[in-house]
Amino acid sequence: MKSIKDQTYYEILEISPTASDKEIQRAYEHAKETFHADSLAVYSLFSEEEVKEIQSAIEEAYRVLMDGVLRKSYDQSHFQSVGGALPEKPLEVQGDIREKRPSLSFTGISFQPDEELYRGKTLKQIRERMGVELPLISKETKISLKVLEWIEEEALEKLPALVYLKGFLKGYAQSLGLNPQKVVEGYLRLIEESKRK
């Protein structure tokens, strides 16, 4: 039982110190969804100030844990200061990006992050934080490297017909362990917004 100020970054995101980048990403999305200002699960329990404090802690935890160098440094300073052994991080094997998605629940459902998150640029940012190269995704998903680049660059005029694009977005999302439906919805919203402009 620790207040948010006393919790480790792993405790803030409710993950193990050996969590992989994909697990961190999913936990972050869940935490963001939970501690959203209008969240049904939060508004009647925490004050606005408490929610803001938790939100900042979540962002900070995510920023540090998704950066290999910062995470290593954090682990060293934190675990050594409490006299524990450094956690053994799982190997992020580049050749096997389709790791089995660990079920966070009895339903195995994925958490729904803010759809705004899934614009091309943000997808690229998530991929880079996970340390996954685009050619590898292309190889795994059989999606042309060019199309993946256009998706990330939001080069909407170059993208294939919607029916194909949806399939590509799903494949891309699955390869990163993201919710395919949400990625497709978020990206289609981006296209709609662009058409309106």
Partner: peptide
């Protein structure tokens, strides 16, 4: 909806934090 199901997980997280 699935979003409703997730509220259960959010309540769980909120209780842990609070």
């Amino acid at each position: 909806s699935k979003k409703d199901i997730e509220i259960g997980f959010s309540i769980r997280s909120a209780c842990l934090k609070y």
